[in-house]
């Protein structure tokens, strides 16, 4: 084979193959299941509109929460201790957990 043929076969084909694979990988990562291209990463700002998932239409009292009076009682954190002295928990209170990452 001539020099040109050798170059084309042994350099060109791998280069084209690498470019094709890189292109496919890039296209897959930017349009993959990563939130439409804007994957959440800790530390990056989360600018999306708040989303509230409900399994069925629920009747909400007031989306802004202004239905609560100014003197609304603050529920206890875990039901076992009061947050601050003087604040009462509503009957029963709520439970759950908190955490941060």
């Amino acid at each position: 084979m001539s020099v040109t043929d050798t170059l084309l076969v042994f350099v060109g084909i791998p280069a084209v193959a690498a470019l094709v694979i890189a292109g496919v990988a890039y296209a897959a990562s930017s349009r993959g299941a990563g939130g439409g291209g804007k994957r959440y990463r800790p530390g990056r700002p989360f600018d999306f509109t708040p989303v509230w998932f409900l399994s069925s239409p629920e009747a909400l009292v007031d989306s802004a929460g202004t239905a609560l009076t100014a003197g609304a009682q603050t529920p206890a954190l875990t039901g076992r201790k009061q947050e601050q002295a003087g604040q009462q928990a509503p009957a029963g209170g709520t439970g759950g957990a908190s955490d941060r990452w």
Partner: peptide, 28 residues
């Protein structure tokens, strides 16, 4: 996500089914 905080709130009846300990584990 901006404040990097997670809160699980269970109602009065729900917290008897899901004790706070288990809620803590799920939060972890």
């Amino acid at each position: 996500p901006n404040q990097r905080q997670l809160e699980i709130v269970t109602g009065q009846h729900a917290r008897r089914r899901i004790p706070d300990t288990y809620a803590r584990l799920a939060a972890l």
